[in-house]
Design a protein around this nucleic acid. Sequence first.
DNA 1: ATCTCCCGCCATATG
DNA 2: CATATGGCGGGAGAT
Length: 815
Amino acid sequence: LKTPLKQAATSQLVLTERQPDCQPLSTPPKPQDTPPAEPWTPTSNLKMLISAASPEIRSREQRKQLSDTSAEVLQAKHCLQEHLLGDEYEKSQPSRKEKSLGLLCHKFLARYPDYPSAAQKSYICLDEVTEELHVERRRIYDIVNVLESLHMVSRLARNRYIWHGRHNLPQTLQALKRVGEENKYIQQIQMIKKREYEHEFEADGEKKEEMASSLGSSEQSEMPFVELPGVEFRAASVNGRKYKSLRVMSQKFVMLFLVSTPQIVSLEVAAKILIGEDQLEDLDKSKFKTKIRRLYDIANVLSSLKLIKKVHVTEERGRKPAFKWTGPEVLPNIQDTKLEATSTTCSSPISESIPSKEHCSKNLFPSKGKQNFTRHSSLIKLVKSIENDRRKIQSAPTSPVKISTSTYQSLPVFPSTIAQLPAIPKPQLEGQSKTAEEMQMKCALPSAEAVPKAEPSEQPAPSQPLGVSPASHSSVSPVILPHPHSGVSYAIYLHPSQAHTVTTYSPGFMLQPLPCANVTGVKSNSSKGINKITTEEGDNQIATAEPTKPLAAEERPEMKSETSSQRCLKRSQALQENNLIKRHRSDEESFGTSLTFFPSGYLIPFTHCTHGNKADCSNKEKAGMCSLQHPTYSSPVTGVIPMPASELKTVNIPAFHITPLNIMLSPNSIAAAPVLSNSCLNSSNASSAPNPSSSALNFMLQHIGLIPAGVQVPANPVLQHVPASSQAENSSGNTNLQEGKVRTNTAPWPCNFLSSLQPSAPKEPQEPQAVTENFFRTPGGPNSGFSLSATSEGPERTSQGTLNIPQRKLEVSED
DNA sequence: ATCTCCCGCCATATG
DNA sequence: CATATGGCGGGAGAT
């Protein structure tokens, strides 16, 4: 194994190294270096294997490899130089690829263990790195910034960073996911896609600025860097504008993946969303280009981290570059996370060693915006800017409780973190101790729970760092619905039964007025299918991603392929119930309270539109916006890439569309399902099941408070149609509650708590997915037999649970 | 031609 | 003030 790998690595390094030396020679244009381009594959495999091994071995291995490599490099280098002309085997110059950020990042990552133990704590000296990797400093910053956004490293001082490895990844991702949800990213994505589609129709020639405007309006003004409770962010540039860049952009980018159901995000969409966020800016072409460039930079490092991989989405328009999330699934809710994290942590050999620093969740400020900024001098400024931000945000009308901005702060203290604290004997922060102290001081622990000292024992109440509403979790939680306009909040209590209903049916809210609406499985699936995607990828490589992720493995549900759709439905329902029950139970235990009401209600601080706020709300009033955002299009549970109904053209069965029917239809797929299931688990979806209930609630809320039932978008016929139909389905927007059915939309408001409370996503969703993918591959292709022509009725056309969701033609393919 | 995205100028931040 | 950071976009290699 090693030999080949080494070679590959070596050659790479060699090339790189040579570059400087061969300057005069470097001229030789691009030799078709096939070899250099692919060397990573073997390496990756090796890495995977290694990762499977114990961390120690792994890291040792890495080191060894590195040293070996470097040693050989020198030799190779000389040899090559001598043979310059020979060039036969080694393509001469470095070629652009060899200088790629991705490659550089690999090298960078190779220097540190994924899960450094306390003993291994490593510091990163930029000077060393740049020298050793032979790169300009600038490049390292790119890498480090992204890593920082994931809390894999943090800056200590000039030239100095500390390496955390992937220990914080789960928490970070969870936090990001949450923020992403609060940010209505799903809707934004939908909106963008819809517009795209619309444009598609008419003269393509014209690019509507309106798009930009509306888009911009819906965006949030700013989203500060998302921090983790235990990891402080000492950004060099905490200052205002710089604040927005790479780091934040990276986080947002990741958020998009985490909230999307097929976890695929196209660069275009990402760029638009990211641009939109920074103030309403016009769709400047150059700006867009720049954004794309940055996204590529980020994507390269995320790819190196194996969190994403590049794919192509093909639709009518053509092939567009996109990326697919291949990282760990993010647990939807805190509780689950807590449990899993804890168990994982405990069992994991690696777990214990996290720098104590990180463990002290001192940063949890109840309501403060940003806290841990190390720099005193800048601190003041920071505060100031923060205040300004806050002011802006809060100034928005109707924001009784303002938490959104500081949402990240409200991240729950990670239980695992707490639990681990005790395990940490002593912080080995020698030189750093000072820093640690500072940090502590800064973090006046607002919440008692945050105290590091917490007993290892699981204190149930763990996490509610949220200064906002700690109690919100109690079993009976009121849902506070602030009315956008009136500013009045409503508390709604849901009865368990209702809640259940909601959960179950929520998926169905989508836009399809299908007859079988109440069938969870069917509906949800259909929603999923929203973007019809043909996947060519995924199977072969399936194996790839998995080994790496221990967590994922644990998560995998054991699923069997059920043959009948009914069974599936039942099953899923049962699971959900179980989850609910479980949750309920846990709640009771935690609080010692037993209630009649089902804890499906959450306290939702209404900050109106999350971070954004004013713009958001005000805009909302604009008819267009309202309709656009209308829940109808969103698929809370599943569908993340919701498609506007308008997109019906040819209806194809979405690749990811999973429906019981599908299952029935394609027996083959079923058979295969079990096999695929494994592969699919990690990859994409588990998340799909995120939070039906929360979404449902949001939606409901929206209906009640925000959206007039009748609002529709005039411009788009389809749209109009949809809302109406859905309503019909349920009797009426407002009455939904009574029925227990709620339509959801990812709420425009922050529903921080919702996410945490949601019933744990059952893992079953995965099953469907697996099936689906398989289904897709079925001969006959995506369209086989399922194309429908869109009629005005679109969705309704189908009956019987047939797949009726109009889909846009979409294909995802790997490179 | 389009997709990628490296390079490095230069404004800012930090010390 | 000297450096460290890092936004930004031209423009060239890869496809």
